[in-house]
Simulated scan of single mutants.
Amino acid sequence: MKVAVMGAGAVGCYYGGMLARAGHEVVLIARPQHVQAVEARGLRLQTQSFDEQVGVSASTDAGAVQGADLVLFCVKSTDTQSAALAMKPSLAQGALVLSLQNGVENAETLRGLLEQEVAAAVVYVATEMAGPGHVRHNGRGELVIEPTSQGATLARTFAAAGVPVETSDNVRGALWAKLILNCAYNALSAITQLPYGRLVRGEGVEAVMRDIVAECLAVAHADGVRLPGDIEQAVRRIAETMPAQTSSTAQDLARGKRSEIDHLNGLIVRRGDALGIAVPANRLLHALVRLIEDRPRAG
C-alpha cells in the first residue's frame, strides 16, 4: 500500500513509521527541518520495544499525496481546511482519507471539501517529537475507526504493522469521549508543563478535573452524543497508562506554537453557550491557555 501522511508530527510519524516498518511505501509531508532529517537519516522510531531508523520518503509539498491509496490526515484542527485544499488537486480518486486528529468536527469538514472517502478515527497514543526526524512513543497506540469501504483491509493492514484497530459505528461518541479526556488533561498539563502522572498528584487537581468532566458530560448529553463506557474511569486511566506524557497542548506552548485549545475546551465553551449550559471550569482553562499563547515571547 502507498501511504501519505499529511501533517507528519508526532502522531503521523508514529503511525506512518509503523506502516513503513511493515513494508508499505510511506511519504511523510512535514515541516522542512523534519523533512531534511528524514532525507538524511530516515525516521527514527523509538518505542518501548525497539529503536530503529525506518526508511520513508519525505516532502514539504502537499502534492506528495499523489498516488496514495491511504492518506493519514494528521494536521492540527486549526489547519484542517487549508491542508485539505492544498492536497485536494493531487489526491487519487480512490484514496481513503483517514482523519487522525483531535476534536470532533474534522471529518465533517473534510467531507465538505473533498470528493474522496473520509473516515474519522479516534487516536489513543502517547507520542512526542524528540527532535527533527525522531519520534518517541511513550505508550498505547490503538485506533478506533468508523466503518469504511476498505474497513477489513485497513484493519488487517494496521494489525500487521502492530497497530490495534477497532471498528465502531459510534465513532462520534468515541471522539467525544477522547475530547473529554483532552479537556481534562491538555490545558492543565499545558499551563503547568507537567506530565500526567505528576499532574494528578497536585493538591486539588482531582476535584478540578471532576468539574471539567462534569461540564463536558452535561454538554455531550444535551448535544445528543452517545458516549461509550465509563468516562470518569477512562480519565483516571490516562494518568495510570501515560504517566510520563505531557499533552500536545503543553508541547505546543513550550514551542511557542498555537495550540488546538479552541477545538478542545473552547468547543465545550461554544457548545455550552449554544445549549445554555454553564461551563466555568472549561471557560477558565480556555482563557488561560489563550493568554499564554498570546503573550510576547523573549527574543
Score class of each variant (00 low, 15 high):
249 T>P: 12
183 C>F: 08
280 P>S: 10
197 G>W: 15
43 L>Q: 13
144 V>Q: 04
25 E>G: 06
161 A>P: 15
43 L>P: 15
131 G>H: 03
216 C>E: 09
89 P>A: 01
85 L>I: 07
86 A>M: 04
262 D>I: 00
195 P>L: 02
142 E>D: 13
248 S>P: 04
147 P>S: 01
51 D>N: 15
116 Q>T: 10
194 L>T: 07
34 H>F: 09
151 G>K: 00
141 G>A: 07
196 Y>W: 07
253 L>P: 04
72 L>Y: 09
179 L>S: 12
273 D>K: 11
112 G>M: 00
200 V>P: 08
245 Q>L: 06
93 Q>H: 07
84 A>Y: 06
26 V>T: 14
176 W>M: 09
177 A>M: 14
70 L>H: 02
208 V>A: 00
75 V>N: 03
57 S>T: 14
138 N>V: 04
152 A>D: 13
296 P>I: 00
211 D>H: 09
147 P>L: 00
130 A>P: 11
173 G>L: 03
296 P>G: 01
20 A>I: 12
296 P>D: 07
297 R>W: 00
215 E>Y: 07
209 M>R: 08
44 R>Q: 08
244 A>K: 14
122 V>I: 06
13 C>I: 00
182 N>G: 14
292 I>A: 10
155 A>W: 01
247 S>E: 07
171 V>K: 04
99 S>G: 04
44 R>Y: 05
48 Q>W: 03
293 E>K: 00
124 Y>D: 12
267 L>M: 03
57 S>W: 10
130 A>W: 02
240 E>M: 06
124 Y>E: 10
132 P>S: 13
185 Y>R: 12
53 Q>D: 14
230 D>I: 01
71 V>Y: 02
40 A>L: 09
42 G>E: 06
155 A>L: 08
163 V>W: 04
103 G>Q: 03
82 S>C: 08
267 L>Q: 03
190 A>N: 07
174 A>I: 05
139 G>C: 09
274 A>H: 13
221 H>K: 14
153 T>F: 08
12 G>Q: 01
66 Q>P: 00
65 V>K: 00
114 L>E: 08
149 S>C: 04
172 R>V: 13
74 C>W: 07
15 Y>C: 03
85 L>Q: 15
245 Q>M: 14
29 I>A: 06
258 R>I: 02
211 D>K: 15
82 S>I: 11
150 Q>L: 05
264 L>G: 03
263 H>A: 14
118 V>D: 06
141 G>V: 03
